[in-house]
């Protein structure tokens, strides 16, 4: 079976502190026949600078897109924020001549030009649309049967609808289906689409911690043994920050937070060590008993 090939756009937060996501993704995609090429000379997607200078955001994103055009390969991101930004800018520059001219004016300074020849995908699109549920199903060796988890999809992989157009943002089902292929059960809970709040960490920490606390509370209420994410920022809010949430609100959660490729990898027969389970802040060994 000939597999597809992507340029892997890592972004900043994964190499900075969430390599468990990268490690597990590479393992799982390799086994599923998806080839990854490293992005050369890339820079931050641009998202964090949008609040202070929209043009710089557009230009940083466009530079990354141009690098991918030079390789003649489409981009796959692991981060919702990177996906949202690169996909939005890619579509805007393709459709809006005025903005394209402006950005190309900036890019001329570094001898680059946006041409609009590639597309941008998030890992979850590659799973659902390129590899497909059937092929993933065939790869399952150790179904995770008695495990009950909850999903957190995050915002930028699905909103704004007019730029993404994938799944139903009010009642998303793709990640749920991907989870259930592993044999785990994906439980419904209140406010599944609520934002993790990570983008305003640093400006105001109190609100994101409250948002994250509420999510952990809601998934605990339905009896989920773990939360499953597809974004390093969301993951950071629920996993890395979980001890801080527990201290702030004087409450114990102890809910492991897995990257989807970790969950899938387990079901494919990889060992927890191969999937970097040890790097998770909240110990996940109790869900690994069988």
């Amino acid at each position: 079976m000939s597999g597809s090939k992507y340029l892997l756009f890592l972004g900043c937060v994964i190499p900075y502190r969430i390599s468990s996501y990268e490690i597990s993704t590479r393992k799982v995609l390799d086994k599923l026949g998806v080839e990854l090429k490293e992005m050369p000379e890339f820079n931050c997607c641009g998202f964090p600078l949008d609040p202070i200078n929209h043009d710089m955001m557009l230009t940083l994103a466009a530079r990354n897109l141009c690098l991918a055009e030079q390789q003649n390969l489409s981009i796959m991101t692991l981060c919702n924020g990177c996906f949202g930004t690169l996909n939005h800018v890619n579509k805007e520059l393709k459709e809006d001549e005025k903005i394209r001219e402006k950005v190309n004016g900036y890019l001329k300074e570094i001898d680059m030009e946006f041409e609009g020849t590639i597309t941008v995908k998030h890992l979850i699109h590659v799973f659902a649309q390129d590899i497909g549920y059937e092929r993933i199903k065939e790869s399952i060796q150790k179904p995770l049967n008695p495990l009950h988890v909850a999903q957190h999809l995050g915002c930028h992989v699905i909103r704004p609808t007019k730029y993404v157009g994938f799944d139903d943002p009010e009642n998303p089902s793709v990640l749920k289906e991907l989870i259930e292929i592993t044999g785990a059960k994906c439980l419904n809970y209140m406010d599944e689409m609520e934002c993790c709040g990570a983008p305003i960490i640093g400006v105001n920490d109190k609100i994101p911690l409250q948002l994250a606390r509420e999510k952990l509370d809601h998934i605990r209420a339905v009896g989920a043994q773990a939360l499953v994410t597809v974004c390093p920022f969301c993951h950071m809010m629920y996993d890395l920050n979980q001890p801080r949430i527990e201290r702030t609100f004087n409450e114990k959660f102890d809910i492991p937070v897995l990257h989807y490729p970790q969950l899938l990898g387990l079901a494919m027969g990889f060992s927890p060590d191969e999937l970097a389970f040890k790097q998770l802040r909240v110990d996940a060994s109790r869900i690994l008993t069988n």
Binding site: N43, N53, D55, Y106, I110
Partner: peptide, 18 residues
Amino acid sequence: LPKASVENLAKLCDITGL
């Protein structure tokens, strides 16, 4: 990780007014 081209980023930062 690839090394970013810092000179180019500085140029873009200037031209966008940042």
